[in-house]
Lab assay of single mutants.
Amino acid sequence: TTLHFDLDGKKLQYTGVSEEIARLVEELKRRGVDLKEIVRILEELLK
């Protein structure tokens, strides 16, 4: 799965993300978590 974000005018793309992580990101968005925080979490998970 590939995730795309537009953060402060920067286009971020994460490829090869598992379905689980993609679902987690969608859930965080639904809960109103700040996009910067979501990206920070995502980068930690993908290390």
Rank of each mutant, 00 (worst) to 15 (best):
1 T>S: 13
1 T>D: 07
2 T>E: 08
2 T>G: 04
2 T>W: 03
2 T>N: 08
3 L>Y: 03
3 L>S: 00
4 H>V: 14
4 H>A: 08
4 H>L: 11
4 H>K: 06
4 H>G: 05
5 F>V: 04
5 F>S: 01
6 D>C: 05
7 L>G: 01
7 L>Y: 09
7 L>K: 01
7 L>M: 10
8 D>V: 01
8 D>I: 01
9 G>K: 02
9 G>I: 02
10 K>V: 15
10 K>C: 05
10 K>M: 14
11 K>H: 13
11 K>Q: 15
11 K>E: 13
11 K>Y: 10
13 Q>W: 09
14 Y>M: 03
14 Y>G: 00
14 Y>I: 05
14 Y>L: 03
15 T>S: 13
15 T>F: 14
15 T>E: 15
15 T>Q: 13
15 T>A: 11
15 T>G: 07
15 T>Y: 09
16 G>F: 07
18 S>C: 01
18 S>K: 07
18 S>T: 11
18 S>M: 04
18 S>A: 07
19 E>A: 11
19 E>C: 04
19 E>V: 12
20 E>K: 10
20 E>T: 10
20 E>A: 12
21 I>E: 04
21 I>S: 05
22 A>I: 12
23 R>N: 14
23 R>I: 14
23 R>F: 13
23 R>H: 13
24 L>K: 15
24 L>D: 09
24 L>Y: 14
25 V>D: 00
25 V>N: 01
25 V>E: 00
26 E>A: 14
26 E>G: 09
27 E>N: 09
27 E>F: 06
27 E>G: 08
27 E>Q: 07
28 L>A: 06
29 K>I: 14
30 R>D: 14
31 R>F: 10
31 R>A: 11
32 G>A: 10
32 G>R: 00
32 G>T: 03
33 V>F: 07
33 V>Q: 10
33 V>G: 04
34 D>K: 06
34 D>F: 06
34 D>S: 11
34 D>V: 10
35 L>I: 15
35 L>H: 11
35 L>R: 04
35 L>D: 11
36 K>D: 08
36 K>I: 12
37 E>G: 05
37 E>A: 08
37 E>F: 05
37 E>T: 07
37 E>Y: 06
38 I>N: 00
38 I>G: 00
38 I>V: 11
38 I>P: 00
39 V>K: 03
39 V>T: 04
39 V>Q: 03
40 R>I: 08
40 R>Y: 14
40 R>P: 05
41 I>E: 07
42 L>C: 04
42 L>N: 00
43 E>A: 05
43 E>R: 03
43 E>C: 00
44 E>L: 07
44 E>S: 12
45 L>C: 15
45 L>H: 10
46 L>M: 08
46 L>C: 05
46 L>Q: 04
47 K>F: 11
47 K>A: 13
47 K>Y: 14
